[in-house]
Amino acid sequence: MRAKALFTYLGLTLLALFLAAPFIWMLLVSLHPSRSPIPELSALLPQNWAWENYGIVLFRTEIPVGRFFFNSLFVSAVVVAAQVLVCGMAGFGFARYAFRGREAVFGLFLASMMFAGAVTQIPVFLMMREWGWLDTYAALIIPGISSAFNVFLLRQFFMAIPQELEEAARLDGASDFHIFARLFMPMARPAVATCAAFSFIAVWTDFFWPLIATQSQDMRTLEVGLSIFRAGYGTTNWPLQMTAAVITLVPVLLVFLALQRHFVRGVTLGGIK
């Protein structure tokens, strides 16, 4: 039994190394002086730690990475806040009221998870062009303010809250919206955290939609901006490319590590249904 445990640890550590190696490489190369060639593995630790690369990439190249960073932060923050409210309300409505057409509408939400993305990109682009929304924050934000998956997730949580709590609040004269905002949402904090983690990571790492919905450099998000940065610096300047990649990765990794417990629950819920 001891040998088996040892074998497990050995295998998992090797695997962890295999998964982490490219990230470690990226971090170290980002600290080599700008324009230096790809280092040999034996010379991976920089001789002079070029921390200034981060300032250069963010503020001092002709590609406005600082602006991309702001765009991503702004769009993600608004989308997460809106999604928590919109999906929270819908989850509450589906879970706590029996109204006409409920099953049918909920079925549409579930069905939309199937075809989301693949078929809808072109028509949404054409609609936004019609409305003059292309290349604006509206194009980046409005399509993201609700997600069928998060509606489903919060509905599951709200269904499990006992009826007595709601009744007691009603006897105290609380309105429907008050019950939602002051009673149910605070109780759903773990589920809301899951929902927020999913939506932040989805928006921050979205590539396809911002790529087609924006054109001007000032409206690009960091994920698209990173591909522009790479194209701008060719394949020659690996240190600066890797600096830009680290800048893109750090926010999502921080959010993931802070909320990882909630994240795992969301993934398994999606799997069980």
Binding site: V86, C87, M89, A90, F92, G93, F94, R96, Y97, A98, F99, R100, R102, V105, L108, F109, S112, F115, A116, V119, T120, P123, V124, M127, I142, P143, I145, S146, A148, V151, Q163, D176, F180
Partner: peptide, 25 residues
């Protein structure tokens, strides 16, 4: 579970979004 059409108010924003960004497209 409350038998009430109030539920519609709560699902309205998400349903409108679903209509405009999934069903119509």
């Amino acid at each position: 579970m409350r038998k009430s059409q109030t539920g519609w108010w709560f699902i309205a924003p998400a349903s409108l979004h679903l209509l405009v960004f999934a069903l119509v497209p």
